[in-house]
Amino acid sequence: MRYLRVWRRYLLISLALVMEYRVNFLVSVLTGLVELGLAVLTFVLMFRFTNDVAGWSRAEVLMLAGVYRVVDALITLQVSPNMHAIPEYVQEGQMDFVLLWPVSSRFTVSVRLMNLPALGNLVSAVALIVYAGNQAGVRWSPGGVAEAAAFMLCGVVLLYCLWFLIVTCSFWLVTLDTISDLFYGVFEAARYPVSFFRGVLRVVLTFAVPVAFATTFPTQSLLGAADTRLLAVGVVLAAAGLVLTQLFWSYAVRHYSSASS
């Protein structure tokens, strides 16, 4: 409960920031539209040559592009501003203050910053999902949407864990301030269904670097083609991810040589 109150306070601060820089919101929505348009165009060009790629039709892949935009918006909203900030805290000694605050340090560094303009991109993303879904002949049901949302939540949590794991290394690699950029190479793979990749790579992208839970499985849920057992796997993986990163974080914090000591 107390954590929820703290998070609400962070939210209000971010809201004040958005109000201050209103043009940013507009710019974010417009560039979001450009990104969405280019993703659609890429798939349209790709499907000029064939009607299906690895079992995916054009409409289905466009749905996935919409799902990717939703995940991207969620990550930009709550995860990425914080992941970029963590190496800075360590470098500039701000971790001192974080450790002094009477809430879990991992909680603070993970949720303090929010990039609210990203919310604007949810509208166009959902519009694309609905439009492409109708083309793909999706029969919308509350169950399917809930299942998709659950998969997506697991996916976002897993991506956060992976990213958090990477940036936690900055306690040792202090000068590596771009360490968080490593994540983007991985996230790029989430733009496509995992079945586009073969062999070991597909297994890696499903379980080790779990982009499949973020985009492929939610899209399949909406299409009514998801393996529900995987949802249980996702929940277990997400829970394990949260616990493991917590352990690693506590271990790493003990190695923190603050700015003043």
């Binding site: 790709m46 040559f49 064939t50 299906d52 790629v53 690895a54 690699l173 000068t175 590596l176 301030d177 771009t178 360490i179 950029d181 490593l182 983007y184 190479g185 991985v186 790029e188 793979a189 496509y192 586009f196 990749f197 073969r198 790579l201």
Partner: peptide, 29 residues
């Protein structure tokens, strides 16, 4: 800042590789 630049370089190889895989999947149709 060589470490940071090395990470950029990793991404400069990984991202085109992912796009390549996708096009190879198309060509295998």
């Amino acid at each position: 800042y060589r470490g940071s630049f090395f990470i950029y370089m990793l991404n400069a190889v990984i991202v085109p590789l992912i796009t390549l895989m996708v096009w190879l999947a198309v060509s295998e149709q």
